Simulated scan of single mutants.
Amino acid sequence: MPMAPGDIEDMIKAGIPGARVTIRDLAGDGDHYAAEVVAEAFRGKTRVQQHQMVYNALKGNMGGILHALALQTSAPE
């Protein structure tokens, strides 16, 4: 069963407090999403570290229930 966009957003926000999260369903199949995550917690971190923080927030669902997630991460300007 695919993950709902709201569930993805909730998990990221729970794992990265204060994050602004926008989720888009890329294929309409509930399996392929894009996420834009803006968080102060990302400041000073590499892009790889930022993405690892998002994957950690998803608690092992990435690659399983959540098949594909295109990530765009940044610290607030």
Rank of each mutant, 00 (worst) to 15 (best):
40 E>A: 15
20 R>C: 06
12 I>C: 06
31 D>E: 15
77 E>I: 09
12 I>N: 02
52 Q>I: 02
39 A>Y: 00
57 A>F: 00
20 R>L: 04
77 E>A: 14
68 A>M: 11
36 E>P: 02
6 G>W: 00
35 A>N: 09
50 Q>H: 06
34 A>S: 13
64 G>N: 15
45 K>R: 15
43 R>H: 12
39 A>C: 07
11 M>R: 14
31 D>H: 12
15 G>N: 06
66 L>N: 04
64 G>T: 12
57 A>R: 05
70 A>R: 14
55 Y>R: 14
19 A>Y: 00
55 Y>L: 14
58 L>G: 04
6 G>H: 09
51 H>M: 06
46 T>N: 04
58 L>D: 04
58 L>V: 03
26 L>H: 14
21 V>K: 04
71 L>W: 02
26 L>V: 11
75 A>Y: 03
41 A>C: 08
5 P>T: 05
57 A>P: 00
7 D>F: 01
29 D>I: 06
23 I>T: 03
22 T>F: 10
40 E>I: 12
50 Q>W: 01
35 A>V: 07
41 A>T: 07
48 V>L: 14
22 T>K: 11
40 E>L: 15
23 I>S: 05
14 A>Y: 07
60 G>V: 02
12 I>E: 01
60 G>R: 05
22 T>G: 10
14 A>I: 08
54 V>K: 01
60 G>H: 03
54 V>Y: 02
55 Y>K: 15
8 I>P: 03
65 I>Y: 01
52 Q>V: 01
37 V>R: 00
40 E>T: 15
37 V>Y: 01
50 Q>G: 07
14 A>Q: 13
23 I>E: 01
5 P>R: 04
64 G>H: 11
20 R>S: 11
69 L>V: 09
30 G>I: 04
25 D>Y: 08
69 L>M: 08
53 M>T: 04
2 P>G: 07
6 G>P: 01
19 A>M: 00
53 M>F: 08
56 N>M: 08
44 G>N: 14
59 K>C: 11
4 A>H: 15
5 P>N: 03
49 Q>I: 03
24 R>Y: 04
44 G>A: 08
15 G>I: 09
54 V>G: 02
39 A>I: 03
59 K>R: 06
54 V>N: 05
61 N>P: 00
73 T>M: 05
48 V>K: 15
76 P>S: 04
21 V>G: 07
60 G>M: 04
15 G>T: 07
40 E>H: 15
39 A>V: 03
36 E>F: 10
